[in-house]
Design a protein around this nucleic acid. Structure first.
Lengths: 141, 141
DNA sequence: CTAAAATAGTTACCATAGATAACGATTATC
DNA sequence: GATAATCGTTATCTATGGTAACTATTTTAG
């Protein structure tokens, strides 16, 4: 399947640009959104969990979380292990999630125009498979 | 198709990391590779053409091309329009393309393990469709 | 049960990629 | 022929991310 990476990567910048524009209304960017999205879908989480999900180093997540704390979108909740910092969405965070979720879903739908349900389903299932193949290779090192 | 962007973006960093590692042997990165790939597949090209292809501003491409010139991978050829800078691969550039192309194709194959031919074909066709839907939206502004 | 190792998060510093604005050189258009 | 537009460049700025070194905890091994 020669050229699949190029096809994948040619999509990246147009998508990021559009998403950042959409999110800028709430002083957010796609990278901050990833954190919000993760917490919303996985419940209160630690920084290491988020870090692993996105294959990004801990200090990067520290920064993202600090910015979300400044924006009063997430807050720390006390946990058992005092090394860990468990964060969850604030009420304001939940509100912002809802609004942005709708906007992003609308964009997702528009971007999928002309693509059949079946093709969409295959994209949906295949992307995580590719990701997991890649992560497996990285672990081997 | 809620969540398709997240699935798409969760793949980005693992992929870029792996590609950069693979290319670092030749003092390249994925961003430089994009330029090499474009010229190889579209013939001698101007900076604006490359810029449009990847939705990246002109100064960014200027830098990439300068680095490729330093590495003696591309060179300028005289063109009719003296505003334009038409670049092509040097012999060395062709060699490096071949070696990297093989390595990347191998990686592409490994990453596609467990994914049927049909699914691969659909990915291959659908990614450009999504890209074109996104670009259409950007043009509207 | 304590000493050493591992883990979570943070800070400081640096690298990479990209954007915007302003400009010179050239070509196209009116 | 004067004005517009286009191509590439430079300078400056921002965003995102990495590495190394550190503190505070918790786990593990002897």
């Amino acid at each position: 399947m020669e050229g699949i990476f190029q096809r994948y990567l040619s999509l990246y910048r147009p998508l990021i640009t559009t998403l950042n524009e959409l999110l800028s209304t709430y002083e957010l960017s796609y990278s901050l959104w990833q954190v919000i999205f993760y917490i919303k879908n996985n419940g209160p989480s630690t920084l290491v969990e988020i870090s692993n999900q996105y294959d990004v180093e801990k200090p990067t997540i520290t920064r993202r979380v600090h910015r979300l704390e400044d924006l009063e979108i997430v807050e720390q909740i006390p946990g058992k292990d005092r090394r860990e910092k468990v964060i969850e969405l604030t009420e304001r965070g939940e509100e912002i999630y809802k609004v942005c979720r709708i906007k992003i879903t609308n964009l997702e739908n528009r971007v999928m125009e002309g693509i059949t349900d079946k093709e969409q389903r295959i994209m949906f299932q295949t992307l995580p498979k590719i990701r997991s193949n890649l992560m497996k290779r990285e672990e081997e090192k």
